[in-house]
């Protein structure tokens, strides 16, 4: 507060920018409110961005970030020199698309079902249970998945065996993993999604349903012609927000569930796991930085596009 007083009395340039004296006062107060956050972001987010330089250097521990030799785009040339870059990009995008579609559809369905029985006492318990997967980390979840899918005594293979189907080595069959990961992600995220959509449904004017019922509309017709159209804006906004993040994969899901199995990389290796491996297993800091840089730039483009679209639909929902 004292700081603000000092600044106010200082110069006229500020008045020029902010307009009237009163506006300036307001703006400076607002700025002072934002200041702690701005400073923290500067320290913990912007200062380390010096590290983006590493993507263009051959990082050597003894020489540090500034002292290491420049190599131009060599790290990127190498990254794109093999099909790895293409593969991790494809997997990240495809899997995230799949997640968005499946999770939205399932969340909407569950929200509609919850709404059907909303007055029931059970609903409270359903809502609680839907959040339980949130408390189980991917590391722990990976042990269940292993107990289920392991070739050596896994539960699923025992069942298949009982049905006369020959056992499958799941951890060696990359073709099944998009489905497995989608299911796991659904299990983890559907609770949150369905609660948000349930909120949307509860927000719909009940008069609309009443009127429809008077006209003899069936349950399905009510869902089809009232619930869905009314929820559409919410669905679109949430989807666009998700598209904005489409270039960032859930590291825990993609790293722990497939147990970092090289044979599964064709379908499970995503940008985030690749960056981690370059860093930790290969100790190649420059390569990790290059892949991270690539992810940021393309992700940035995606968000700018998504934001542009959101803004056209409803400026209130835009990110910036």
């Amino acid at each position: 507060m004292t700081m603000q007083k000092n600044v106010t009395s200082s110069n006229g340039l500020l008045t020029k920018f902010f307009g009237s004296r009163r506006d300036m006062q307001t703006n400076l107060t607002l700025l002072s409110m934002a200041l702690p956050g701005i400073v923290l972001l500067f320290i913990f987010a912007y200062l380390p961005m010096v590290g983006l330089l590493i993507a263009f250097k051959d990082y050597r521990f003894a020489d540090g970030i500034l002292g290491s030799a420049w190599v131009g785009f060599a790290n990127f040339r190498f990254l794109f020199g093999t099909d790895t870059a293409w593969r991790i990009t494809r997997n990240t995008l495809l899997m995230n698309c799949l997640f968005i579609v499946v999770n939205t559809a399932a969340s909407l369905t569950i929200a509609v079902l919850l709404n059907e029985v909303f007055k029931s006492r059970m609903t409270k318990y359903y809502q609680t249970l839907l959040f339980f997967p949130y408390f189980i980390s991917w590391v722990i979840a990976s042990y269940f998945v292993f107990a289920l899918l392991s070739a050596q005594g896994g539960i699923l293979n025992q069942w298949l065996d009982a049905l006369g189907v020959p056992p499958t080595a799941w951890y060696r069959s990359p073709q099944y993993w998009p489905a497995i990961l989608t299911l796991a992600n659904l299990w983890n995220g559907v609770g949150f999604g369905s609660i948000v959509y349930l909120a949307g449904i509860l927000g719909i004017d009940p008069m609309l349903f009443e009127a429809a019922k008077m006209d003899g509309a069936s349950k399905w017709q009510q869902v089809r012609y009232i619930t869905m159209p009314m929820l559409l804006p919410l669905v679109i906004i949430l989807t666009l927000l998700a598209i904005g993040r489409i270039f960032n994969a859930d590291f825990g899901l993609f790293y722990f569930l497939p147990r970092d199995t090289p044979m599964l990389y064709p379908t499970t290796d995503v940008i985030d796991t690749f960056v981690y491996r370059s860093l930790v297993q290969l100790g190649d800091i420059s390569m990790a930085a290059a892949a991270g840089f690539y992810q940021s730039v393309v992700g940035f483009a995606m968000v700018v596009t998504a934001n542009w679209i959101v803004r056209r639909i409803n400026a209130d929902y835009s990110l910036y």
Binding site: F146, S150, A151, Q152, A169, Y171, R259
Partner: peptide, 8 residues
């Protein structure tokens, strides 16, 4: 004679 997959 060998496990079906690499075991933890």
């Amino acid at each position: 004679w060998l496990p079906l997959e690499t075991l933890p």
